Simulated assay, not measured.
Amino acid sequence: MRVAIAGAGNVGRSIASELIENGHQVLLMEKRRSVLKPERVPEAEWMLADACELESLQQAALETCDVAVAATGDDKVNLVVSLLAKTEFAVPRVVARVNRAENEWLFNKEWGVDVSVSKPRLLAALVEEAVSIGDLVRLMTFRQSQANLVEFTLAPDNPHVGSTVDELDLPGDAALVAILRGARVIAPSPADTLEPRDELVFVCHEDVEDGIRRLLAGDEDNGDKSW
């Protein structure tokens, strides 16, 4: 997979390093000469250029990329890069970084964004996840499908401790995708038993989040399910 990343600061370089480690080809675009440091990620292709300029994107052959990532620290720049990548070069997948929470509403399909990653929201979610036991924490939103990645940590006295995965009566638009147990990442099977302080990671539609929250907390009324 070929990936173009606009913005070669700490965020852009970190993304590039991870993708290269996973076997992908990466082009890093940066307009500030002082930030252009190919020695930091020598396996990547580097380009000194303004990703907001159509000519620069043409020189980068953006149409050959499978993914474009707008990773600069400026939301306006990220929106322009996303729009150009999608409308002018038909890049199949456009991912954009959101730096300011108040700008999140702009990062949608009208601006060419398939997936937005909000730094403020992500940091807030990670803080919540670190301190919240017994409550459902939203970690990430998949805008294209209106689904969310959510996490629930089982307190020692949770009624589901000792139950098996197949005993969780989840709604139809929800799936348990991982159990985090200490340093282990467990791909859940129906017979797996839930233990105290297990972190349960779900993908679910936003409409059923409240139902999952009540189910996991032991508050749901089996005679009157909202799903």
Rank of each mutant, 00 (worst) to 15 (best):
M1T: 08
A8K: 06
A8F: 02
A8D: 01
N10M: 06
V11H: 08
S17Q: 14
S17T: 06
I20A: 08
E21V: 00
E21K: 14
H24P: 01
R33K: 15
R33L: 12
P38Q: 15
P38Y: 15
P38W: 15
E39M: 14
R40N: 14
R40S: 14
V41E: 13
E43S: 15
A44S: 10
E45Y: 12
W46H: 11
L48R: 09
L48F: 12
A49L: 11
A49D: 05
A49V: 10
D50I: 10
E53F: 12
E53K: 14
S56T: 12
Q59R: 15
A60D: 04
A61T: 04
T64I: 00
T64E: 10
C65I: 00
V69C: 03
V69N: 02
A70Q: 03
A71Y: 05
T72S: 04
T72F: 09
K76V: 02
N78I: 09
L79T: 05
T87G: 00
E88N: 08
E88V: 10
F89C: 03
A90D: 12
V91M: 09
V91I: 02
P92V: 11
P92K: 14
P92M: 12
V95C: 08
V98I: 15
W105G: 00
W105F: 14
F107Q: 03
F107Y: 06
K109F: 03
E110C: 02
W111D: 00
D114M: 13
V115M: 13
V117D: 01
V117M: 12
V117W: 11
S118P: 01
P120F: 11
L122C: 00
L123D: 00
A124G: 00
A125T: 02
A125L: 05
L126M: 12
V127Q: 00
E129C: 02
L136C: 05
L136H: 08
L136E: 04
V137A: 02
R138E: 10
R138M: 11
T141V: 08
R143K: 10
S145A: 03
Q146L: 03
A147E: 05
A147N: 01
N148Q: 06
E151Y: 08
F152Q: 02
T153S: 06
T153N: 03
T153F: 02
L154E: 03
L154V: 05
L154A: 02
A155D: 11
P156C: 13
D157F: 10
D157E: 15
V161D: 04
G162P: 14
T164D: 01
T164A: 13
V165S: 07
E167P: 06
E167A: 15
D169C: 09
L170G: 03
A174V: 04
A175D: 01
G182L: 08
S189H: 14
S189Q: 15
S189T: 14
P190F: 12
A191F: 13
T193S: 13
T193K: 15
T193Q: 15
L194F: 14
R197Y: 14
R197G: 00
R197D: 09
D198P: 04
D198N: 07
E199C: 11
F202D: 02
H205A: 09
E206D: 06
D207P: 01
V208K: 01
E209G: 05
D210P: 00
G211E: 15
G211M: 12
G218W: 01
D219V: 13
E220D: 12
E220L: 14
E220A: 13
W227A: 08
